[in-house]
Deep mutational scan, measured.
Amino acid sequence: FKEKSRSVLREWYAHNPYPSPREKRELAEATGLTTTQVSNWFKNRRQRDR
């Protein structure tokens, strides 16, 4: 993950740790990642924050 992608994901996570499928698609387009990568990033981040 590039730093720019991570910062976008972190910003979204601060507002909503559970993005909808549509939001995940938008994030994937904005970051250049796949929706699976975005989903996994959020899943891992939520697990880490437990």
Rank of each mutant, 00 (worst) to 15 (best):
A14I: 15
R22G: 15
N40S: 10
F42M: 04
V8F: 12
P17N: 11
R6V: 15
R50Q: 06
D49L: 04
V8M: 14
S20P: 02
D49G: 03
R46M: 07
N44Y: 07
N16Q: 10
L33N: 05
R45N: 13
N40P: 01
T34G: 06
E23I: 03
L9C: 03
E29F: 00
R10Y: 06
Y18W: 07
R45Q: 15
T34P: 00
R22Q: 15
A14S: 13
T35G: 12
R25I: 14
P19L: 04
Y18P: 02
E29D: 11
S7I: 14
W41T: 01
L27G: 01
S20A: 06
V8N: 04
E29Q: 03
T31I: 08
R45I: 06
Q47D: 15
S5I: 15
R6Y: 10
R6D: 12
E29R: 04
K24E: 15
A30D: 10
E29Y: 01
K43I: 08
S7V: 13
S39L: 01
W12S: 07
T31K: 00
H15A: 13
P21K: 05
K24M: 11
A14K: 09
S20D: 15
S39C: 09
A14W: 03
E11I: 03
N16V: 03
R50E: 12
D49T: 04
R45G: 05
L27Q: 02
E11M: 04
P17A: 15
T36V: 09
R45Y: 05
T31H: 02
S20C: 08
N16D: 12
E26F: 07
E3P: 03
L27S: 02
T36G: 11
A14C: 15
Y13P: 00
E11H: 05
K2I: 03
F1W: 05
R48Y: 05
S7R: 10
S20V: 09
V8P: 04
N44L: 07
Q47G: 10
T34C: 07
N16F: 05
Q47L: 07
E29V: 06
E3T: 04
T36F: 08
E3Y: 12
K2M: 09
L27E: 00
T35P: 11
N16A: 05
S20R: 04
E26Y: 05
L9N: 00
R25F: 15
R6W: 12
H15S: 14
K43P: 04
G32I: 01
N16C: 09
K24N: 11
F42D: 01
R10E: 14
T36W: 06
F42S: 01
P17Y: 04
E3L: 06
T35Q: 15
L33G: 03
K24H: 15
Q37G: 06
E11S: 10
P21F: 12
K2C: 10
L33H: 03
N16L: 03
E3F: 07
A28T: 07
G32W: 02
T34F: 03
R45L: 06
V8K: 10
Y13E: 02
L33S: 05
F1A: 02
R22M: 15
L27Y: 07
L33D: 01
F1Q: 09
L27I: 07
K43A: 11
A28E: 05
L27R: 00
H15K: 13
R48S: 13
E23S: 04
R46T: 06
T35H: 10
L33Y: 06
D49P: 01
K43R: 08
G32V: 01
R10T: 11
S39A: 07
E3H: 08
E3V: 04
Y18I: 08
Y18S: 10
F1H: 05
R50V: 02
R22Y: 15
W41Q: 01
E3S: 07
S39N: 11
E3M: 08
T34V: 03
V38W: 02
P21Q: 08
L27W: 01
T35Y: 15
S39Y: 05
L9H: 00
Q37S: 08
L9R: 00
E11T: 04
S7T: 13
K43V: 10
K2W: 07
T34W: 02
R45F: 05
P21A: 08
A30G: 12
R25A: 15
R46C: 06
R25S: 15
S7W: 09
P19M: 00
T31R: 00
H15E: 15
R10I: 14
S5T: 13
R45H: 12
R25T: 13
R45A: 10
W12L: 06
Q47H: 12
Y18G: 02
A14R: 07
R10L: 13
R48W: 08
P21C: 13
S5N: 14
Y18A: 08
S7P: 06
R46W: 06
K4N: 12
E3G: 06
R46H: 04
S5C: 04
A28N: 02
E29W: 02
R10C: 13
T34L: 06
K4D: 15
R10N: 13
K43Q: 12
T31Q: 03
L27V: 08
Q47F: 07
T31E: 06
N44P: 01
N44F: 12
Y18C: 10
R48A: 11
T35V: 13
K24D: 06
S20G: 08
E11V: 04
Q37F: 04
P17E: 06
F42A: 00
P17D: 06
W12I: 05
E26L: 04
